[in-house]
């Protein structure tokens, strides 16, 4: 069964999600990656209200046509690079949803459990498909400072697909797979 999630993301709904559930997201998403996370971590002021919101680790391909931004491709980027910054941002802004690929580490997993946040994995590289679920570009911040790939894009999405891989109880599918594959690796290398 696919769970419908809608912005703003209510804490009780987030706490209700468990690892392995597929979700379909509608409403606002904010993109952000390396430059933005470092900026927010260092105490920079967010130009948008991130409370009860979702940060999507992505740098879209966007072109401006007749004064309107069109997103042509927008899959997730590797989330692990934001691991040093993520926990503090979740705590400070009360972000409820992180979307990316590859999972995140212990600090983020603990912050998800403590403050009520989930990590969703979108299918890496599925950029055309995910771009189809983007219905509008509401605004873009830091475009000249960070460049198009690193800018903060505020998007309106409908039916954006992902799967819960770290839940608000602190369970992590990534951790589980890493451990089980390690056990097999050791056998194969014997």
């Amino acid at each position: 069964m696919i769970r419908e999630l809608e912005y703003p993301f209510a804490l009780n709904k987030i706490r209700d999600l468990t690892v392995g559930q597929r979700v379909s997201i509608s409403g606002k998403l904010f993109t952000g990656r390396d430059r933005l996370h470092k900026y927010l971590f260092d105490g920079g002021k967010s130009p948008v209200d991130l409370k009860d919101g979702a940060i999507y680790h992505a740098g879209p391909v966007a072109i401006r046509r007749d004064g309107v931004w069109v997103v042509k491709a927008a899959g997730p980027t590797t989330s692990m690079r934001e691991e040093p910054y993520m926990a503090k941002i979740i705590e400070h802004y009360r972000v409820r949803v992180i979307i990316g690929k590859g999972g995140m580490g212990e600090a983020t997993r603990n912050a998800c459990a403590k403050y009520g946040c989930v990590y969703l994995q979108a299918v890496g590289g599925a950029a055309s498909l995910l771009a189809e679920s983007i219905k509008a570009v509401n605004s873009v911040s830091f475009l000249s400072e960070f460049g198009a790939a690193e800018a903060l894009w505020e998007l309106t999405v409908k039916g954006f697909r992902a799967v819960v891989t770290i839940d608000a109880a602190g369970r992590s599918l990534h951790k589980r797979i890493e451990r089980s594959s390690r056990r097999v690796l050791e056998k194969v290398l014997k």
Binding site: K72, A73, G75, T77, V123, G125, A126, A127, S128
Partner: peptide
């Protein structure tokens, strides 16, 4: 689910003439 999504993405990229992945 992932593999099915990947195949669907490949079809959409051809149809919409858009990049398979945003990281070109």
């Amino acid at each position: 689910w992932v593999l099915e999504t990947i195949l669907e993405n490949a079809a959409i990229s051809r149809r919409n003439d858009t990049p398979l992945c945003q990281d070109t």
